[in-house]
Design a protein around this nucleic acid. Structure first.
Lengths: 229, 229
DNA sequence: TCCCGTCAAGAGCACTGCTCTCGCTTTTGT
DNA sequence: ACAAAAGCGAGAGCAGTGCTCTTGACGGGA
């Protein structure tokens, strides 16, 4: 008796192939990719797809999970590249990795960070992978603070904000000043905004040299977060 | 002979009603609203809609244009409220107006700033209205600089960035230092990111008090842009 | 060997955007 | 005032969609 029966093996390969074909369709059709078209591309009848994914939304969820995984891995790998205390280098590397991944997989990025798909509600299993990129970014600040290379911001946060961020600090970065977390989240927000504007064509006419623009704007946020030059 | 014939009057009313019904459907169906459903809601047959909008995309374009107009008006009105030299007040008012409009019209905001609709290419007529909000925001910086209340940033921009932003400066804000424009665009990017994260549910679990969070993060960007307290 | 579970296939339902034709009414030109 | 032209709603129809259900064939565990 094989550890995985022939059936199970074939089934796993089928699922992988469906996801691969669906990813291709995602690039042209966005979130309303067609199961029938995927089935056609695979030489099967549409109803057969439902043996592997009980609905179109489940297929979407699988693609979303894989995309989060890929983006999270890319950012994590980038952040681990430079010396641990080269804060600015790590910040830039992480941001660049996120943007590069997005430019290489625009449809998947849009699926993750674009408008929510009308009838679709992201299941809970997506929340943890979705948190990885911002957590990785803020991790740079944690490291810098621990090494004494970042001075925590002087400002005191107004109350409801401090309490909310305090919960996040307690859960993910014990000891991190809330004001520093706030600046880290600003950096993450800016990164998302820069990538989205770029990808969704908002800079098309205005800024021809988008790589350089991105690097500079990312550097501005590094200043705001207090990363030493 | 009436200045506008009965037919023309009825036609204009029809177009308005179609847009109104479509806006309602937008809220539930997002960008894939259905012409047939709109027609059903109006008690007509689907083919009749095509007398008024030659395609679904044209209807979308009309909705997009009106949405840009509404958002642009809201931001412009907010910016004109406070004293002209109350830079921080104007910045906060403008950002708040944009967010309020987005929260009141989430589907329309998603149409403007969410993932691009798959088969749809925004016609040229949308580019000017799309520029209004950021131009209004940077206008605050122009006013502050002219009044001597903002010190232009000390940094020198790396070359391709300076040249690109120089074109924008020449076109829209003659005399404005490119570095200041860069910071204004960072503010606009951050505003878009904050609203999107809020609207697309990315803060749901993490930040319960989103109004206060928004105000604080917007204030951070005011600091970055050099707005005096 | 037998039988149960899995599979692909096909038909079918309700829906979509869009086109075309058919009559009817309003507007326009003479 | 009358006819031609243009605008209009209704309906049928085409190709496509997600999804369900039934049918028949095949493989693997007992």
């Amino acid at each position: 008796m094989p550890a995985s029966s022939i059936r199970a093996r074939v089934r796993a390969e089928m699922i992988d192939e469906i996801k691969a074909v669906a990813r291709r369709h995602l690039a042209t059709d966005g979130a309303n990719l067609s199961l029938r078209a995927v089935a056609r591309d695979m030489g099967m009848v549409s109803s057969a797809i439902y043996r592997y994914f009980p609905s179109r939304d489940e297929l979407l969820t699988a693609l979303i999970l894989e995309a989060y995984q890929a983006l999270g891995d890319a950012v994590a790998a980038a952040v681990a590249g430079p010396d641990r205390l080269d804060l600015r280098g790590r910040w830039h590397a992480a941001c660049r990795a996120a943007r590069d991944w997005a430019l290489a997989h625009p449809a998947e990025y849009a699926l993750l960070y674009g408008s929510p798909v009308p009838g679709y509600a992201a299941p809970d299993e997506t929340v943890e992978p979705a948190q990885r990129p911002p957590l990785t970014l803020v991790g740079i600040l944690r490291d810098g603070l621990a090494a004494g290379r970042i001075d925590p911001p002087a400002e005191v946060l107004p109350e409801p904000v401090r309490a909310d961020l305090g919960e996040l600090v307690a859960a993910f970065f014990p000891g991190l000043p809330e004001a520093l977390l706030a600046r880290g989240m600003a950096g993450w927000t800016q990164l998302f905004g820069l990538i989205s504007f770029d990808l969704f064509g908002r800079l098309n006419r205005a800024v021809p040299h988008r790589d350089a623009y991105f690097e500079h704007q990312i550097g501005l946020m590094a200043d705001l977060m207090g990363l030493p030059a």
